[in-house]
Design a protein around this nucleic acid. Structure first.
Length: 500
RNA sequence: GGCGCCAUGGUGUAGUUGGUUAACACGCCGCCCUCUCAAGGCGGAGAGCGCGAGUUCGAGCCUCGCUGGCGCUACCA
């Protein structure tokens, strides 16, 4: 039996981190087993579903490098007829029943509280079985007649009164739940008979021949309801593997409302993350290969992935909303920097290119006559960058004459020593005569000039750094000179004298 | 309220069938390197494994209780 897994997001917003991770795990498992990775858009909630969201989910998967799903995307809303037919069949078989109780509208926002209150009062009123329903045992003929007569009804699954539901979860082990804990869940809404989530999921998973359901732990207890539907439908249940949740630093579930853009996958794309780095980071949230390896290529991730390596406790996504430097998990940032500095340059360059293009810093020469220079420069500056944004930010002075001077750097490296006003132009004169222009020759020349004028080489070096790059930090200065070339170096040294 | 799940340094994790001073990574601190900042190298602080019992010669690993967190509980998905 070939493995078939699916990622089934509901298109009600951007792609959430947790969902992205679930997608990744499904994908890894499919690739690992030589199985199929399917995609199903659970758009049954027409009110909240949007095409834009669907697009952004697709984009997100594409960006993560796992957008190569193996079959046509399934849109759940288009299968509503099948879902409905399944439920109606269950009525005929006596496994579900029409509930003619008038529909009660509940305020969506306060359900949680309502549930608790309902449970409390039910417990107070002795002997109330919240599953008792006068229509549960209505004779089929009467049910059919009333239904045919146009009386509105919902369809509920008939859950056995006694016994317990059980299934084996690959991650969480055996799950047992008493039937008395499970209500006769609604399969079809009264009125339009539109299918509800649990029914749709099961019917679609059967239709798509899904063999392994890998999804968030928030579905764990509801899985019992789905198992019941599988059984009613007479279909074997798939293997379930639930994933631990990803929590915010305050241990609450990560949510858009409370935590904002950190939870959106597109944020990471927009803020200059390398897909491979973020994917790598995500893979390590709730899963471990069992040893100390952390940096893993896609191939390694695939070969080392296993459902057994998923663990049970929730993971905290660690970030600090009040500190811009910690806008997201530090380890994710570290990993991104690690990728930027160590990945093959030819893989990095295209990403840098699109960043520069959107910042208006790209020049076609960079892939033509200036290609060697461009790559050397990128290779030099990437060593201390964290995101792709740095190439257009901190890296700007390397690529454009239109850049800003960091006031603190100017204060520290230029203004602090008045003699620089005169030394910088003289250094420029000196360097102008260096031939050939290399890291070594410039260094020799600069140090000789320092000796001549009786100042420390460091003074000249640091002021040069600010003069050429506008910054106080950066690569080894002689590499910077080298990359800037003679005329640009000399010009910036002279220009900077005015800032002293 | 009920039911379920979880619990190793600040965070992510490792911890084989219970057996030496609980390991790795991020972060933090210090030193080295050095023209700055990183990177890199070296070292350090930080958990005695949520708490309490029990089993055992011996428990982070087993048992029970408690506490805490989270999830589910809807004619939402």
């Amino acid at each position: 039996m070939t493995v078939r897994v699916r990622f089934a997001p509901s298109p009600t917003g951007y792609l959430h981190l947790g969902a992205a991770r679930a997608a990744l795990f499904n994908w890894l498992f499919a690739r690992k087993c030589g199985g199929k990775f399917l995609l199903r858009i659970e758009d049954t909630d027409l009110q909240r579903s949007t095409d834009e969201s669907t697009r952004s989910i697709l984009e997100g998967l594409e960006w993560l490098g796992i957008g190569d799903y193996d079959e046509e995307v399934v849109f759940q809303s288009r299968n509503a007829d099948k879902h409905r037919a399944a439920a109606l069949r269950l009525i005929e078989e006596g496994k579900a029943y029409r509930d003619f109780t008038p529909k009660e509208d509940r305020a969506d926002a306060n359900v949680k509280r309502e549930i608790a209150e309902r449970a409390r009062t039910a417990a107070a009123v002795e002997g109330v079985d919240h599953r008792s329903n006068p229509y549960r045992d209505l004779p089929l003929e009467e049910s059919n007649r009333r239904g045919a007569a146009g009386e509105p009804f919902a369809v509920r699954l008939k859950v056995a009164r006694e016994g317990r539901s059980r299934f084996e979860d690959v991650v969480y082990g055996e799950q047992v739940r008493d039937y008395s804990e499970i209500e006769d869940l609604v399969l079809l809404r009264s009125g339009d008979l539109s299918p509800l989530y649990n029914l749709s999921v099961v019917v679609d998973d059967i239709e798509m021949a899904v063999t392994h359901v890998i999804r968030g732990q928030d579905h764990l207890t509801n899985t019992h309801k789905q198992v019941l539907i599988y059984q009613a439908l007479g279909t074997p249940v798939p293997v379930f593997a639930h994933l631990p949740l990803i929590l915010a630093p305050n241990k609450a579930k990560l949510s858009k409302r409370k935590h904002g853009e950190v939870v959106s996958l597109t944020t990471y794309r927009d803020r200059g993350f390398i897909p491979a780095a973020f994917r790598n980071f995500l893979a390590l949230l709730g899963w471990s290969p069992g040893d100390d390896r952390e940096i893993m290529s896609l191939e390694e991730l695939i070969s080392r992935f296993s459902l057994e390596g998923i663990h049970r406790s929730n993971a905290v996504f660690n970030f600090n909303e009040r500190d811009a430097r910690q806008w997201t998990d530090q380890k994710a940032l570290w990993m991104n920097a690690e990728y930027i500095r160590t990945m093959p340059l030819e893989e990095l360059v295209p990403m840098v290119r699109s960043e520069l293009e959107s910042a208006g810093l790209w020049r076609p020469e960079y892939v033509a006559e200036e290609r060697a220079w461009f790559e050397r420069t990128i290779d030099l500056i990437r060593q201390r960058f964290y995101t792709l944004k740095d190439f257009s930010g901190q890296g700007r002075a390397y690529l454009s004459d239109d850049f800003e001077f960091d006031p603190q750097a100017v204060a520290k490296n230029l203004k602090k020593e008045p003699r620089l006003r005169e030394l910088l132009p003289r250094l420029a004169d000196h360097l102008e005569r260096v031939e050939p222009w290399t890291t070594e020759t410039v260094e020799t020349a600069l140090r000789a000039f320092a000796d001549e004028t009786g100042v420390k080489a460091g003074l000249l070096i640091n002021s040069s750094r600010t003069a050429l790059t506008g910054q106080a930090v950066g690569p080894s200065m002689f590499d910077v000179f080298d990359v800037f070339g003679r005329s640009r170096s000399v010009k910036r040294l002279r220009d900077a004298a005015q800032l002293v």
